[in-house]
Every structure is written in C-alpha cells, then in structure tokens.
Design a protein around this nucleic acid. Structure first.
Lengths: 203, 203
DNA sequence: ACCTGAACACCGTTCAAGT
DNA sequence: ACCTGAACACCGTTCAAGT
C-alpha cells in the first residue's frame, strides 16, 4: 500500500497530509492537532517537523491540494468542451460547487480566513492563481466567440467567481442546510442561478 | 466609561466581547485565546466562564454581533429608499461588502467554518435568518414593482446573496489583494458587477 | 537523513474556595 | 452572584540524543 522504504515510513509526507485531511473533514479545522495527525500516521509528535515547518505549513499544504483540485477541474472544462464556451462555463460552476460540497472543510480552509495571507506558501499562491486563470480562460473563450457582454474579462470572471464561490461557501459552511440539502436540489439551483446570471435579473 | 457597578466589573460580558473582537481583528481567529481575552479585560482566566459556556460560545456571540450588524444594514436599505427597490438592492450590496471589509475577521468567523453548525446558538441562527430575510424583502419589493424576472423570490435572493457574499469573502480573506485594494476601486467593482448581475452577461 | 523523548510555554476547562 | 488559584489534560515547538 505505502512505500515503507526508508527508515520508518518512506512516504510520511503524504501520510501526514492524508491523516490531516481525514481529521479535518471529520472534525473541522479546530479538531486538527499536529500531535493527533502524527499519532494517526503512526509516528512521534515531532516527526511532522521533518516535513512541514509548522502546523500552519501543513494546513497550507492541505489547502494547496484543494487549489490543485480546483485548477484541474477548471482546466478540464475547456478540454471537455473545446468548441462550446457556454458549456465550459456551466461545467465549471457545477464542478466548483461539487468540490466545495465534496470537501467542505478543505474549502473552508482554502477560503475561510484561518490561514492568513502571511501563512500562504508560494505554491498555494501559484495554484490559487492557476484556478482563477482557468476561469479567466473560460470567460475569454466566451468573449472571443462573441457571446458575452462587452466588459473587461477580469470583471466578468470576478462576477462569475464571486457568485459560484459565494454559493459554495454558503453550502460548505452549512448556511443552506434548510434550503438545499440533497445533491439533486443543488444541481437544479446551480442551473437556475446560472441561467439568471447569464440572462440577467431585470426584465 | 464602563458601569463598574457590581463586584468587580459591572459589564464584564460586553468587556469580554470587545476585548475578543479587538484580538480577533488584530490577529485572526487563531490568535484569540480565552486567557488573553480575560487578561485584556483585566480579570482572571476563569472569569469568562461566568458569562459564556466556553470559548466557542464567546466566538458565537461575536459572530452574532456581526449578523446583527448585517441584518440592520439590510433593513436600513428598505427604510432609506422606501419607493425604490433597485436603490434598496444597490445599497444592500454596497453595505454587505463594506461590512466585510470593515470587519474582515468577524466576517471570516461568521462564514469561514471555524464555528461548526453544532456551535451555533439560537440567537446566532435568529440573526442570520433576519439578515437573509432582509435581503428577501428587498427582492420581493423589486418583484412587486414588476421590475424583476419571473422567478421564485428565494432563488433570486440566493443568487444575489451568493454573488455579494462571494465577493465579500474573497475580499475579507485577502484573495483580491492584487485586483482590488483601495475602497474606491471596490465601490466601482461592486457597481459594475451589480450592473452585470442585473442586466445579464449574455448579449 | 530520519525519528524520538524530555522539556517548556501556552491553552481550555473544571472545581473547591473565597468575598 | 461573582471572581480567584490550583490543578489537569492537551497542544505547538525546540532541542539534544539516538539509529
């Protein structure tokens, strides 16, 4: 299963990340302690310091995996519908919400402000930018096909990002537990809201 | 300044909340410890337990003050423009973003998932609902004036909430530090995005 | 290189005791 | 009623020491 090559573990780095993510999703960020993570991985409570500068660095690495997932999901939309920018956009919004619902606590960790900008690693920033660039590309594709309103690409992308992000955060933090519980309802809501966002709210 | 009536403090409850909010906004939620809050308020580290069940209860009370501010801001929009639902909506979006930027760490605490649903007090839920109801009213006013698209009030409100909320969270968590730093830029962005949201993105 | 155990400062929480 | 000090279990981090 694991490599178990070297002195003790072989791939302690990833084992720690996996243990931390499991703890995070089960208990929330408040339930993650470095000592518990180490115990789950089967090493002493100081071993993690060989792989991460401190606790925040581990959490930042966890958030980074979330940004990687998000960036790759955005890029997959372009690949899956190379000729249809509107389908790219639709898939992107569904993928964003799905990731937030599938990994709610990682989403909170990415965007919930527990990690302050000072804690962000270079890699986290890089992957976060890559995710936004993926969305920018999708908007740019729509503009180049002549389908979108004549506004700055960045502004349209920021509007879409804000909307999808806001909905995802409200879901992952539990604020929509009454209005939208099951996945079917959420899919329908995303479609309906996406339609309004594209067509506009005013008559 | 304070009441200093009773045995020691008179209004320790509010003194603790004020100390906690100051610590929170200065250091982020990770920098808030009950012992430090007590020290700042000038009492022993066990005194807070006379006023709050535990640390999460103090944080929940802090988040509740944020929801109160938000709910009152929403309700003020209706009062300030009794005959103009579109102005109500515009003011609401600006107020929401302003609160998030003015109290970024409280916003993170309200929506960032540190407080799990199990930690929510009844009062927090009540004020959170009141804030959303305020937004619902603004949307309903727009619908009754015949200006909005023929969709469920809840869905339009959820779309607007998601958009404004997403933008606010991206701001308060520091993810837009490059794209939008000064207040003037943010005001312009909110107007531009609000315009697109109302008119639609598609040609 | 990689890991450990002891140690330190700090934290949340409880509880018997003081006024 | 309101507050305190001692105590306990837990935590993040450092460091000398082990293989």
């Amino acid at each position: 299963m694991a490599k178990t090559s070297g002195y003790h573990h072989g791939d302690l780095h990833n084992a720690l990340l996996a243990a931390a993510e499991a703890l995070l999703e089960k208990q929330g960020v408040g339930g993650v302690s470095l000592r518990e993570v180490a115990k789950t991985a089967g090493v002493s409570h100081t071993a993690p310091y060989r792989h991460f500068k401190d606790k925040n660095a581990l959490l930042a690495a966890l958030a980074t995996t979330g940004y990687v997932r998000l960036a790759e999901a955005m890029e997959a939309c372009v690949r899956d519908h190379p000729e249809d920018p509107l389908q790219q956009m639709s898939q992107a919004s569904h993928a964003y919400v799905e990731l937030a619902i599938g990994h709610p606590q990682v989403t909170n960790l990415m965007f919930g402000g527990v990690l302050q900008p000072a804690d962000w690693s270079d890699e986290l920033g890089k992957e976060s930018n890559r995710a936004f660039e993926g969305l920018l590309t999708i908007v740019r594709n729509g503009q180049e096909s002549g389908r979108y309103v004549d506004k700055e690409t960045r502004e349209i992308a920021l509007l879409v990002w804000s909307t999808v992000h806001g909905f995802s955060m409200l879901c992952s933090a539990g604020h929509l537990h009454e209005v939208a519980e099951d996945p079917r309802q959420i899919t329908a809501l995303v479609d309906s809201m996406g339609g309004m966002l594209m067509q506009g709210i005013l008559k």
